[in-house]
Protein backbone atom coordinates (compact mmCIF):
# COMPACT_ATOMS: atom_id res chain seq x y z
CA UNK A 1 0.00 0.00 0.00
CA UNK A 2 1.25 3.52 -0.83
CA UNK A 3 2.12 5.44 2.29
CA UNK A 4 0.26 8.73 2.67
CA UNK A 5 1.79 12.16 3.08
CA UNK A 6 1.22 12.20 6.85
CA UNK A 7 2.72 8.74 7.35
CA UNK A 8 5.83 9.81 5.43
CA UNK A 9 6.19 12.92 7.60
CA UNK A 10 5.84 10.78 10.70
CA UNK A 11 8.48 8.35 9.45
CA UNK A 12 10.84 11.23 8.62
CA UNK A 13 10.34 12.79 12.07
CA UNK A 14 11.21 9.50 13.72
CA UNK A 15 14.20 9.10 11.44
CA UNK A 16 15.45 12.61 12.28
CA UNK A 17 15.42 11.76 16.00
CA UNK A 18 17.04 8.39 15.39
CA UNK A 19 19.80 9.87 13.19
CA UNK A 20 20.67 12.49 15.75
CA UNK A 21 20.76 10.00 18.60
CA UNK A 22 22.77 7.54 16.48
CA UNK A 23 25.30 10.23 15.57
CA UNK A 24 25.64 11.19 19.25
CA UNK A 25 26.65 7.64 20.01
CA UNK A 26 30.03 8.20 18.26
CA UNK A 27 30.92 11.01 20.67
CA UNK A 28 30.88 8.45 23.51
CA UNK A 29 33.13 5.91 21.73
CA UNK A 30 36.73 5.89 22.99
CA UNK A 31 38.46 6.90 19.75
CA UNK A 32 41.37 9.23 19.06
CA UNK A 33 39.44 12.47 18.55
CA UNK A 34 36.89 11.66 21.26
CA UNK A 35 39.66 11.65 23.86
CA UNK A 36 40.89 15.12 22.96
CA UNK A 37 39.91 18.21 24.91
CA UNK A 38 37.01 19.92 23.06
CA UNK A 39 38.70 23.34 23.29
CA UNK A 40 41.83 21.97 21.62
CA UNK A 41 39.67 20.31 18.99
CA UNK A 42 37.77 23.50 18.14
CA UNK A 43 40.94 25.59 17.78
CA UNK A 44 42.90 22.98 15.80
CA UNK A 45 40.00 22.08 13.52
CA UNK A 46 39.49 25.74 12.80
CA UNK A 47 43.19 26.00 11.82
CA UNK A 48 42.87 22.88 9.62
CA UNK A 49 39.77 24.33 7.95
CA UNK A 50 41.69 27.49 7.06
CA UNK A 51 44.49 25.34 5.60
CA UNK A 52 41.94 23.34 3.59
CA UNK A 53 40.57 26.51 2.04
CA UNK A 54 44.06 27.81 1.17
CA UNK A 55 45.54 24.71 -0.55
CA UNK A 56 46.06 25.33 -4.29
CA UNK A 57 47.30 21.89 -5.44
CA UNK A 58 44.91 19.02 -6.06
CA UNK A 59 47.43 16.35 -4.94
CA UNK A 60 47.98 18.06 -1.57
CA UNK A 61 44.23 18.58 -1.16
CA UNK A 62 43.57 14.89 -1.86
CA UNK A 63 46.22 14.03 0.73
CA UNK A 64 44.53 16.37 3.19
CA UNK A 65 41.18 14.73 2.51
CA UNK A 66 42.80 11.31 3.07
CA UNK A 67 43.95 12.64 6.46
CA UNK A 68 40.31 13.30 7.44
CA UNK A 69 39.45 9.70 6.49
CA UNK A 70 42.36 8.47 8.59
CA UNK A 71 41.09 10.56 11.52
CA UNK A 72 37.62 9.04 11.08
CA UNK A 73 39.09 5.52 11.17
CA UNK A 74 41.21 6.12 14.29
CA UNK A 75 38.19 7.73 15.92
CA UNK A 76 36.21 4.53 15.31
CA UNK A 77 33.66 6.09 12.99
CA UNK A 78 32.61 3.50 10.37
CA UNK A 79 34.05 4.69 7.05
CA UNK A 80 30.88 3.85 5.11
CA UNK A 81 28.73 5.89 7.48
CA UNK A 82 31.19 8.78 7.42
CA UNK A 83 31.53 8.85 3.60
CA UNK A 84 27.78 8.68 3.17
CA UNK A 85 27.17 11.59 5.56
CA UNK A 86 29.80 13.74 3.85
CA UNK A 87 29.13 12.90 0.19
CA UNK A 88 25.34 12.93 0.28
CA UNK A 89 25.25 16.74 0.17
CA UNK A 90 28.22 17.37 -2.10
CA UNK A 91 26.61 16.43 -5.46
CA UNK A 92 23.54 18.48 -4.53
CA UNK A 93 25.25 21.68 -3.45
CA UNK A 94 28.79 21.72 -4.82
CA UNK A 95 28.17 19.56 -7.89
CA UNK A 96 25.64 22.03 -9.29
CA UNK A 97 28.08 24.91 -8.81
CA UNK A 98 31.09 22.96 -10.15
CA UNK A 99 29.41 21.42 -13.19
CA UNK A 100 29.45 24.49 -15.54
CA UNK A 101 33.12 25.05 -14.70
CA UNK A 102 34.20 21.87 -16.50
CA UNK A 103 33.14 23.25 -19.93
CA UNK A 104 35.33 25.43 -22.10
CA UNK A 105 32.55 28.04 -22.15
CA UNK A 106 33.36 28.86 -18.51
CA UNK A 107 36.94 27.56 -18.17
CA UNK A 108 38.90 27.81 -21.43
CA UNK A 109 41.86 25.46 -21.85
CA UNK A 110 43.03 22.24 -23.43
CA UNK A 111 40.04 20.26 -24.70
CA UNK A 112 39.73 16.84 -23.14
CA UNK A 113 36.43 15.72 -24.60
CA UNK A 114 34.51 17.47 -27.38
CA UNK A 115 30.75 17.40 -26.89
CA UNK A 116 29.39 19.46 -29.78
CA UNK A 117 30.56 21.28 -32.95
CA UNK A 118 28.88 24.58 -33.73
CA UNK A 119 28.68 25.77 -37.35
CA UNK A 120 30.90 28.73 -36.48
CA UNK A 121 31.63 31.26 -33.69
CA UNK A 122 28.37 32.24 -32.04
CA UNK A 123 27.36 35.28 -29.97
CA UNK A 124 24.53 35.43 -27.47
CA UNK A 125 24.18 39.02 -26.32
CA UNK A 126 27.42 40.04 -24.65
CA UNK A 127 28.65 36.40 -24.54
CA UNK A 128 30.55 34.64 -27.31
CA UNK A 129 30.64 30.86 -27.64
CA UNK A 130 33.60 28.93 -29.09
CA UNK A 131 33.25 26.74 -32.21
CA UNK A 132 33.29 23.56 -30.17
CA UNK A 133 31.68 22.88 -26.78
CA UNK A 134 34.10 20.71 -24.82
CA UNK A 135 35.18 19.62 -21.37
CA UNK A 136 38.62 21.00 -20.62
CA UNK A 137 41.51 19.73 -18.55
CA UNK A 138 41.59 22.99 -16.62
CA UNK A 139 37.82 22.80 -16.05
CA UNK A 140 38.02 19.28 -14.62
CA UNK A 141 40.94 20.35 -12.41
CA UNK A 142 39.04 23.39 -11.09
CA UNK A 143 35.86 21.44 -10.45
CA UNK A 144 37.79 18.65 -8.71
CA UNK A 145 39.56 21.23 -6.54
CA UNK A 146 36.21 22.71 -5.49
CA UNK A 147 34.57 19.36 -4.79
CA UNK A 148 37.53 17.95 -2.83
CA UNK A 149 37.93 21.21 -0.91
CA UNK A 150 34.27 21.14 0.12
CA UNK A 151 34.50 17.42 0.95
CA UNK A 152 37.55 18.08 3.14
CA UNK A 153 35.91 21.02 4.91
CA UNK A 154 32.65 19.13 5.47
CA UNK A 155 34.64 16.11 6.71
CA UNK A 156 36.49 18.25 9.22
CA UNK A 157 33.27 19.84 10.48
CA UNK A 158 31.59 16.43 10.59
CA UNK A 159 34.51 14.92 12.54
CA UNK A 160 34.32 17.72 15.10
CA UNK A 161 30.57 17.32 15.59
CA UNK A 162 30.53 13.51 15.52
CA UNK A 163 33.38 13.06 17.98
CA UNK A 164 32.38 15.74 20.47
CA UNK A 165 29.49 15.59 22.82
CA UNK A 166 27.19 18.53 21.98
CA UNK A 167 27.20 19.66 25.59
CA UNK A 168 30.99 19.68 25.75
CA UNK A 169 31.17 21.47 22.41
CA UNK A 170 28.96 24.24 23.79
CA UNK A 171 30.98 24.46 26.97
CA UNK A 172 34.23 24.60 25.00
CA UNK A 173 32.78 27.47 23.00
CA UNK A 174 32.07 29.35 26.21
CA UNK A 175 35.64 28.78 27.43
CA UNK A 176 36.88 30.15 24.11
CA UNK A 177 35.02 33.39 24.87
CA UNK A 178 32.34 32.98 22.25
CA UNK A 179 29.52 35.24 23.57
CA UNK A 180 27.48 33.26 26.08
CA UNK A 181 24.20 34.57 24.70
CA UNK A 182 25.00 32.76 21.42
CA UNK A 183 25.85 29.58 23.33
CA UNK A 184 22.64 29.69 25.36
CA UNK A 185 20.59 30.26 22.19
CA UNK A 186 22.32 27.29 20.52
CA UNK A 187 21.80 25.13 23.60
CA UNK A 188 18.14 26.06 23.89
CA UNK A 189 17.52 25.50 20.19
CA UNK A 190 19.04 22.03 20.36
CA UNK A 191 17.21 21.26 23.60
CA UNK A 192 13.77 22.29 22.37
CA UNK A 193 14.12 20.88 18.86
CA UNK A 194 14.09 17.46 20.52
CA UNK A 195 11.07 18.34 22.58
CA UNK A 196 9.13 19.62 19.57
CA UNK A 197 10.13 16.67 17.40
CA UNK A 198 8.60 14.49 20.10
CA UNK A 199 5.46 16.65 20.15
CA UNK A 200 5.21 16.38 16.34
CA UNK A 201 5.66 12.61 16.51
CA UNK A 202 2.94 12.36 19.20
CA UNK A 203 0.53 14.47 17.14
CA UNK A 204 1.01 12.23 14.11
CA UNK A 205 0.66 9.06 16.16
CA UNK A 206 -2.49 10.39 17.85
CA UNK A 207 -4.00 11.00 14.40
CA UNK A 208 -2.97 7.61 13.12
CA UNK A 209 -4.44 5.84 16.17
CA UNK A 210 -7.88 7.34 15.36
CA UNK A 211 -7.77 6.81 11.61
CA UNK A 212 -9.56 3.90 9.99
CA UNK A 213 -9.24 4.61 6.28
CA UNK A 214 -6.57 6.51 4.39
CA UNK A 215 -7.57 10.18 4.01
CA UNK A 216 -7.29 12.25 0.83
CA UNK A 217 -4.30 14.41 -0.01
CA UNK A 218 -6.29 17.63 0.43
CA UNK A 219 -7.45 16.60 3.89
CA UNK A 220 -3.88 15.63 4.81
CA UNK A 221 -2.61 19.06 3.72
CA UNK A 222 -5.28 20.77 5.83
CA UNK A 223 -4.39 18.62 8.80
CA UNK A 224 -0.66 19.37 8.47
CA UNK A 225 -1.35 23.12 8.14
CA UNK A 226 -3.51 23.02 11.27
CA UNK A 227 -0.83 21.09 13.19
CA UNK A 228 1.80 23.67 12.17
CA UNK A 229 -0.46 26.30 13.73
CA UNK A 230 -0.84 24.22 16.89
CA UNK A 231 2.91 23.72 17.09
CA UNK A 232 3.60 27.45 16.72
CA UNK A 233 1.09 28.10 19.53
CA UNK A 234 2.70 25.44 21.73
CA UNK A 235 6.21 26.73 21.10
CA UNK A 236 5.07 30.29 21.87
CA UNK A 237 3.51 29.21 25.18
CA UNK A 238 6.54 27.13 26.11
CA UNK A 239 8.92 29.99 25.27
CA UNK A 240 6.90 32.22 27.64
CA UNK A 241 7.11 29.61 30.40
CA UNK A 242 10.84 29.07 29.82
CA UNK A 243 11.40 32.81 30.14
CA UNK A 244 9.34 32.96 33.35
CA UNK A 245 11.25 29.99 34.77
CA UNK A 246 14.51 31.77 33.97
CA UNK A 247 13.31 34.98 35.65
CA UNK A 248 12.15 32.99 38.65
CA UNK A 249 15.66 31.63 39.15
CA UNK A 250 17.28 35.05 39.00
CA UNK A 251 18.02 35.43 35.27
CA UNK A 252 19.77 38.76 34.86
CA UNK A 253 20.27 38.73 31.12
CA UNK A 254 23.72 37.15 30.98
CA UNK A 255 24.17 33.40 31.24
CA UNK A 256 26.90 31.82 33.33
CA UNK A 257 28.04 28.24 32.86
CA UNK A 258 30.30 26.00 34.93
CA UNK A 259 33.52 25.20 33.09
CA UNK A 260 35.47 22.02 33.76
CA UNK A 261 38.09 20.95 31.24
CA UNK A 262 41.55 19.50 31.58
CA UNK A 263 44.29 19.22 28.92
CA UNK A 264 45.92 15.76 28.79
CA UNK A 265 49.05 14.42 27.04
CA UNK A 266 46.92 13.40 24.04
CA UNK A 267 45.95 17.02 23.55
CA UNK A 268 49.59 18.08 23.62
CA UNK A 269 50.40 15.46 20.98
CA UNK A 270 47.57 16.73 18.79
CA UNK A 271 48.58 20.37 19.41
CA UNK A 272 52.04 19.41 18.03
CA UNK A 273 50.68 17.37 15.08
CA UNK A 274 48.48 20.15 13.68
CA UNK A 275 51.23 22.82 13.31
CA UNK A 276 53.47 20.11 11.79
CA UNK A 277 50.76 19.38 9.20
CA UNK A 278 50.41 23.07 8.46
CA UNK A 279 54.22 23.44 8.16
CA UNK A 280 54.33 20.45 5.80
CA UNK A 281 51.69 22.09 3.60
CA UNK A 282 53.63 25.38 3.60
CA UNK A 283 56.81 23.48 2.63
CA UNK A 284 55.03 21.58 -0.16
CA UNK A 285 53.75 24.90 -1.55
Amino acid sequence: MRRDFVAKTLAETGRAIEHTLFAQHFAKVKGFLQLLDPRVKIVTFFALLIVATCIRHLEILVGFYALTLFLAVVSRIPLGFFLKRVWVFIPIFTGIIALPAIFNVVTPGQNLFVLYHLSGPCRIGPFSLPEVIAITNQGIYGAAMLVIRVATSVSLAMLLVLTTDWVKLLKAMSVLRIPEVIIVILAMTYRYIFLFLKVVEDMFLARRSRLITQSGLREQHHWIAARIGVLVGKSYNLSNDVHLAMLSRGWSGSPRLMEEFRISWRDWVWICVVPLTISLWLWLR
Binding site: R191, V242, L244, A245, R249, G250, R256, L257
Partner: peptide
Protein backbone atom coordinates in the same frame (compact mmCIF):
# COMPACT_ATOMS: atom_id res chain seq x y z
CA UNK B 1 7.05 24.72 37.48
CA UNK B 2 4.46 22.09 36.68
CA UNK B 3 6.14 21.24 33.37
CA UNK B 4 9.82 20.50 34.04
CA UNK B 5 10.55 21.07 30.34
CA UNK B 6 9.87 24.76 30.91
CA UNK B 7 12.48 24.85 33.63
CA UNK B 8 15.25 22.72 32.18
CA UNK B 9 16.86 24.42 29.21
CA UNK B 10 20.60 24.15 29.77
CA UNK B 11 22.95 21.57 28.18
CA UNK B 12 23.47 19.39 31.26
CA UNK B 13 21.77 18.65 34.56
CA UNK B 14 24.82 20.05 36.35
CA UNK B 15 24.46 23.37 34.49
CA UNK B 16 20.76 23.40 35.39
CA UNK B 17 21.53 22.99 39.09
CA UNK B 18 24.21 25.66 38.92
CA UNK B 19 22.06 28.16 37.02
CA UNK B 20 20.27 29.91 39.90
CA UNK B 21 23.20 30.17 42.35
CA UNK B 22 25.46 31.47 39.55
CA UNK B 23 22.82 34.03 38.61
CA UNK B 24 22.62 35.39 42.16
Amino acid sequence: FQDPDAQLFLPTVKDELAFAPLQI
